[in-house]
Design a protein around this nucleic acid. Structure first.
Lengths: 132, 132
DNA sequence: ATATTAAGCATCCATATGGTTGCATTTCAT
DNA sequence: ATGAAATGCAACCATATGGATGCTTAATAT
């Protein structure tokens, strides 16, 4: 044996991982990545957390909870909107923002799938280490 | 009543949402955001998916599954490593990469929390809409 | 001993991102 | 009618990001 380490190389394989669920995740990897990217900023994460309370908030209200300018918040909201995670309605002179339930549900489902796959991966790693 | 729409403004409130779990998420928002950001790129998502199979792969092997250069892959792996999601071991002339079980487990747990919170938010939205 | 293979290092490039500021526009309250 | 409030629009700026390329170094195989 060339190496007595737990880590060892696997044969090169084309294509993605061999689980159907994981493949379905990979198929929409662009969309999924955009969702993760949307959450990949502290300010945006905070905005989402606030909106998670279930309400509809105006830009000034949301700005009050951050350290940045109103325009900065607007930009972040736009990013979230582009990822389809949030929607808005103009009401008089203010624009109210809330979570987009459908997309959020979709994202949550995907995260669950990934969670399950990770579980699977961890299981394999464990038996791998134990069988050493 | 000023507006007969489902959407309506909530009173401005300082501080984050009022759930203990969600607060705990917000507390580590920097770390959490870095995890999401790490997953927020199609190539990186693909790398993670491959590593989810549970193996340890060299850079050339990982590169074979992407469209970009070896150096590009190296950079992406570094991003994942910075987020603590992946680790590597130098083995002879190659460097093998695999998922970091601890961090992955942590990330998964956080995603579950967010999932639960979203559920909660959706519930509120529903009763909100129905009570109209 | 030497060619080959795997990876590292440094540089460069274009574009995206996160943020600001200043000014215009729309709506509301008095 | 007019001033204040909430946004919108556009430009600007610094830095981060995703990517390539060229050359060097370290291990391996023959």
């Amino acid at each position: 044996m060339r190496n007595s380490v737990i880590l060892r190389a696997m044969p090169t394989r084309k294509g993605p991982a061999n689980s159907a669920d994981l493949r379905s995740v990979a198929r929409s990897s662009e969309t999924l990545a955009s969702i993760f990217a949307a959450l990949g900023d502290p300010t945006r994460l905070k905005l989402v957390a606030i909106l998670c309370a279930g309400g509809a908030f105006s830009i000034v209200q949301l700005t009050a909870n951050t350290e940045i300018s109103r325009q900065g918040v607007t930009k972040h909201l736009q990013v979230l909107a582009d990822a389809g995670m949030v929607r808005n309605v103009k009401l008089g002179r203010e624009r109210l923002w809330q979570l987009e339930p459908k997309q959020i549900e979709e994202a949550k489902r995907t995260l669950e799938i990934i969670g399950r796959e990770w579980e699977l991966a961890l299981g394999k790693l464990k038996t791998f280490a134990e069988s050493k």
